[in-house]
Simulated scan of single mutants.
Amino acid sequence: MKLLALDTTAEGCSAALWLEGVLFERSIRSPRGHTQHLMPMVRELVAEADIRLSDLDALAFGRGPGSFTGLRIATGVVQGLAYGLDVPVVPVSSLAAVAAQAVRRGVAQEGQGVAVAFDARMGEVYWNCYTVQHGVPRASANERVCAPQQVTLTETADYWLGAGSGFTLVNQLPAAVRETVAESYPDWYPQAADIASLAVADWSQGVQVPAWEAAPVYVRDEITWKKLPGR
């Protein structure tokens, strides 16, 4: 399995290449430099792995929710590459990627809960809850955008941790959430390495879409993705 994953959903810009179980990755914190760094990262990865882009079996990307501008960048690059290479795409939730990061870092253990929140601006957060099952974060509800005061923990777990920029608004969360979440990591954002690992697992379950169906998920219903002209 050869899979290239990209993420530009937040202030970070990252790319990761999964090559038969070996992971190559590049990452930089550059809120306004996504277009500058993304394709050079891709070229560095394929050179390091000594493969060609045409060798790829699939592409993956952080499909959101997240920064509107960032989502458009990753989606556009992945869609263009997928058309050119004629390979399918695995869209991965950016919230789930941060939950997977908690597992990768050894912070979240089996059976524990991970609440992920991104600052959605306009007084709202993107929110979802996950429990670690067999080493993988499993969503216990649908992603949503809401005021911080309206979030809830949708699953029962022995231990909860929080992650994502939404936890900079921790004082606005309901008391029940603040009292249950034992620790939080507000500086965490999605990484392509975690998107790659989740995408490989999804790929094995047949989760994939053609290039023309690769689209960002904004959660806010009034925003839509415009496909490439003529597609």
Rank of each mutant, 00 (worst) to 15 (best):
M1W: 02
L4P: 03
A5Q: 07
L6H: 00
D7V: 02
T9W: 04
T9N: 11
G12T: 13
A15V: 05
G21V: 13
G21W: 05
V22K: 15
L23G: 09
S27P: 09
S27H: 15
S30C: 14
S30L: 11
P31M: 01
P31K: 00
P31E: 01
T35C: 13
H37E: 11
P40Y: 08
P40H: 05
A47L: 13
E48I: 10
I51P: 04
L53M: 07
S54E: 15
D55G: 05
D55Q: 10
D57E: 06
A58K: 01
L59D: 07
F61E: 13
R63C: 13
G64R: 03
G64S: 06
P65Q: 03
F68Q: 13
G70Q: 04
G70N: 11
L71M: 06
L71K: 09
R72H: 02
I73M: 07
I73Q: 01
A74C: 08
T75D: 05
G76N: 05
V77K: 01
V78N: 00
V78E: 00
V78S: 00
Y83D: 10
Y83S: 06
L85K: 11
V87Y: 00
V87A: 03
V87G: 00
P88L: 11
V89N: 05
P91L: 06
V92G: 02
S94E: 10
S94Y: 06
L95R: 01
A96H: 02
A97I: 12
A97H: 07
A100M: 13
V103Q: 05
Q112P: 00
G113W: 03
G113Q: 01
V116K: 09
A117Y: 06
F118S: 01
A120Y: 03
R121L: 05
G123S: 06
G123L: 11
E124T: 12
V125C: 01
V125R: 01
W127S: 01
W127T: 04
C129S: 09
Y130Q: 10
T131I: 14
Q133W: 09
A139H: 08
A139I: 11
A141D: 12
E143M: 12
R144T: 03
R144L: 04
A147T: 12
A147C: 08
A147H: 13
P148F: 00
Q149N: 06
Q150D: 14
T152F: 10
T152S: 11
L153K: 09
T154M: 07
G162T: 14
A163N: 09
G164S: 08
G164D: 07
G164E: 02
T168N: 14
N171G: 09
Q172M: 12
L173N: 03
P174K: 11
A176E: 13
A176Y: 04
V177M: 07
V177Y: 03
V177T: 09
V177R: 01
E179I: 06
T180H: 12
E183T: 13
Y185E: 06
Y189S: 14
P190C: 12
Q191W: 08
I195H: 05
S197Q: 15
L198C: 04
A199F: 00
V200Y: 05
S204T: 11
Q205K: 15
Q205E: 15
G206Y: 10
G206K: 08
V207K: 03
Q208A: 14
V209Y: 00
P210C: 10
E213N: 15
A214V: 12
P216N: 03
R220D: 12
W225I: 08
W225F: 09
K226Q: 15
K226I: 14
L228V: 15
P229W: 12
P229F: 11
G230F: 10
R231G: 12
R231E: 15
